[in-house]
């Protein structure tokens, strides 16, 4: 049998055996993610929440800043009713509308803080993982220094230096990014150390690819999975930290609503007014908003991990 006849025979049968529809990476990911029911429910919930936050002026039933002393007589919060399903606070402001506007703050802080942390962490981690040697050493020790700070104290100190009235979502997000980039950097560095020894990376070096091209074409695309998971799990942490900061008075200042300062308001005012009332709805609904949002992000994180982790081979 001649060489060419034989290889064409081989080729012909190869074709037969793989003639099935091509499936992209995204389709595979999507098929796997869809099987995770909680993550799918969470994704729907978050999409709705994001839409509500964007269209808050249209969606909110009342003006979140408008005092209604008719409603809150003698500074007594109005309980949930048909027109105010989540009740009101001591000034008669509609709780539901405030939660809807507060979602803007929480989501914004969550996304911006995590986005900044990912960008910074990825750059530093990639540099450390690819360059190695003393650069790696320097960056990782730098990260250790940041990890040694108690995060909440650090954030409070940093935010205290900004005047309360000028404090914006972006100040908070920036501070949260400063205390949050280290995990991403470590993750990326670890991935790079593994991927650097993969044979396809060596193959790229063997054809003379530049370091830049190796980082952006061979290494980063393969490190994306864990980073997406880290991001989806980092967002709820940022939301919780923002709530804690606002609760403690270092975050968003009233009257602008945030979920954290709404809970804070439910407690402190009770004592300040020296009035004996039991307005459970003032703390419960913002707390519920925080809890469900954080849970939703966590479930999505789990779903992403299952769908992106190459070790869970479902095919």
């Amino acid at each position: 049998m001649s060489a060419s006849a034989e290889s064409s025979l081989v080729a012909a049968s190869d074709r037969q055996l793989t003639d099935e529809p091509a499936r992209g990476q995204f389709q595979i990911f999507w098929r796997r993610f869809r099987r995770h029911k909680l993550a799918m429910v969470s994704a729907v919930y978050l999409v709705v929440l994001i839409l509500v936050a964007i269209f808050a002026p249209i969606v909110a039933p009342h003006d979140p800043y408008k005092n209604d002393l008719q409603l809150a007589r003698f500074g007594e919060p109005a309980p949930p009713s048909f027109s105010h399903p989540f009740g009101s606070d001591q000034l008669g402001r509609d709780q539901l509308s405030r939660i809807i506007y507060g979602a803007r703050v929480s989501l914004m802080v969550g996304f911006v803080a995590t986005g900044l942390a990912i960008v910074a962490g990825t750059m530093l981690g990639a540099l450390a993982g690819y360059a190695g040697k003393w650069i790696d050493m320097g960056i990782m020790r730098f990260a250790d220094v940041f990890l040694a700070f108690p995060p909440l104290l650090f954030a409070m100190a940093a935010l205290a230096s900004v005047d309360g009235n000028e404090r914006s979502v972006f100040h908070i997000a920036a501070v949260l990014a400063v205390i949050g980039w280290m995990n991403v950097a470590r993750l990326i560095r670890g991935e790079f150390l593994i991927l650097r020894t993969r044979e396809y990376t060596e193959a790229a070096r063997a054809v003379g690819a530049s370091g830049f091209s190796i980082v952006f074409r061979e290494l980063l695309p393969n490190a994306v999975g864990p980073v997406i998971v880290a991001a989806s799990l980092g967002i709820p942490v940022a939301i919780l930290t923002e709530s804690a900061l606002s609760f403690l008075g270092f975050g968003i200042q009233p009257p602008e609503p945030s979920w954290g300062n709404m809970i804070s308001g439910s407690g402190s005012n009770t004592f300040a007014m020296m009035r004996d009332f039991n307005a459970w709805w003032m703390g419960f609904f913002p707390g519920l908003a925080i809890a469900t949002t954080v849970l939703a992000f966590n479930f999505i994180g789990d779903g992403l991990r299952d769908a992106l982790d190459p070790r869970t081979h479902l095919d």
Binding site: Q25, E199, Y200, E202, R217, P221, N222, V224, P310
Partner: peptide, 16 residues
């Protein structure tokens, strides 16, 4: 000068 690797699974970038 080129190289052919042993492991057909790790020698091709799965994302490309």
């Amino acid at each position: 000068m080129q190289i052919i690797f042993q492991d057909p699974f790790s020698s091709l970038n799965p994302r490309r």
